[in-house]
């Protein structure tokens, strides 16, 4: 009998602690002011633009071969390690003035080329042999590729270089040097727009414009749209389908490369396990916007960035991942076509 009473008390305590958790959600909201909100919005938009750039890589690949390229986030992780290696080789000290900008451009372009080529090679080795297999075999292969990249990141972190802390603890997160200072670039009211925010904007916006131009107005872009619509039809029209697929992997990967450099500069820490988190955020963004839809990926990325930032600021940061994954599940269950995607036909 005593045990029953104790059990009832425990269950009641469980119920109460749930209420507590919900109470925590609302508690901080009361302290909000216009500035806090705007500041969170700025942070969210900056992160969102980075997420959007990675999400484009997911959405391009999905649009063309209907593969959730699970390895994309880990590709970006390796890109961050590549960038860190280049920075370490160039020397961490002199990054001011014109030389600094040149160096930054070099790191950006180099990492983009590295990620693009790596993504192209992954496609060639792990996905192309499975072109005729089912979508799920392809997904399993992509998960395998993702694990291989994670392990390469672990190896990479053991390089005996200063930037990797002499590689003595390969699994530990590495500090990414603050090449662009987080000093305020502008201040309006109490809201600070930092130089890194500016950097994010200067890198992501031109790339998105360039990509839109490429997909809309160039021959390659037209070929990509044709392959996405109907690969057999496209190949009958003389399009080299494999080449177009390879090109989309390269382009998606190099956008991820740009994004990962900006991400590392913005967050100033990299680890071999960060690819999973980056990849999931970007994938959720792509799904939210409507996977296969380029403007959708950008919209989704910005929304996810803002939602994360608002959840960090107004709920509790430890619940942010739950919120974001909850959104993913709700979209997939109730509106799999996403915000901008066309309504899917139910196929039997």
């Amino acid at each position: 009998m005593q045990q029953t009473v104790a059990a009832a008390e425990f269950l009641a305590a469980c119920a109460l602690s749930r209420v507590d958790a919900v109470g925590g959600f609302a508690r901080d909201g009361l302290l909000s002011s216009q500035e806090v909100f705007t500041q969170q919005l700025v942070t969210g938009l900056s992160n969102g633009m980075i997420i959007a750039l990675i999400a484009i890589g997911y959405t391009m690949v999905y649009g063309i071969i209907e593969l959730i390229n699970f390895a994309h986030g880990d590709l970006c992780m390796l890109g961050a390690y590549f960038a860190l290696t280049v920075v370490g080789a160039l020397g961490v000290d002199q990054w001011a003035g014109t030389g600094g900008i040149m160096g930054l451009v070099l790191v950006l372009v180099g990492t983009a080329a590295f990620c693009g080529s790596l993504n192209w090679s992954i496609n060639r080795l792990a996905y192309r042999p499975l072109r005729k297999a089912s979508k799920l075999s392809l997904l399993v292969s992509a998960i395998g590729a993702s694990f291989i990249l994670v392990n390469l990141g672990l190896f990479w972190g053991g390089l005996p270089m200063d930037v990797f802390a002499d590689g003595t603890s390969s699994a530990a997160p590495k500090a990414f040097p603050a090449l662009v200072s987080a000093a305020p670039a502008a201040q309006i009211g109490d809201v600070i727009y930092s130089r890194t925010d500016l950097l994010v904007l200067c890198v992501t916006l031109p790339l998105m414009v360039a990509l839109t131009y490429l997909v809309r107005f160039t021959k390659l872009g037209k070929a990509m749209r044709a392959v996405a619509q109907n690969p057999t039809g496209a190949s009958l029209m003389g399009i080299d389908v494999e080449r177009v697929i390879g090109a989309s992997f390269f382009i998606g990967g190099s956008l991820g490369g740009f994004a990962t450099v900006v991400y590392s500069l913005y967050n100033q820490t990299v680890s071999f396990q960060m690819g999973y988190r980056m990849g999931m955020d970007a994938f959720i963004a792509a799904v939210l916007g409507g996977i296969g839809n380029l403007p959708g990926a950008v919209l989704g990325g910005i929304l996810i960035g803002v939602i994360r930032s608002m959840s960090d600021g107004y709920l509790e940061a430890r619940w942010t991942n739950t919120v974001v994954f909850g959104i993913l599940i709700l979209i997939l269950v109730f509106r799999p076509s996403g915000l901008l995607g066309a309504k899917l036909r139910e196929k039997v």
Partner: peptide
């Protein structure tokens, strides 16, 4: 389904053979 035929059946590609692709440019 080609060489991946077995996994195609077993890992469940069979549930909904994709008839046409629904790609939004």
């Amino acid at each position: 389904e080609g060489p991946g035929g077995v996994a195609g059946g077993v890992t469940g590609g069979g549930a909904s053979p994709v008839a046409t692709k629904e790609l939004r440019p």
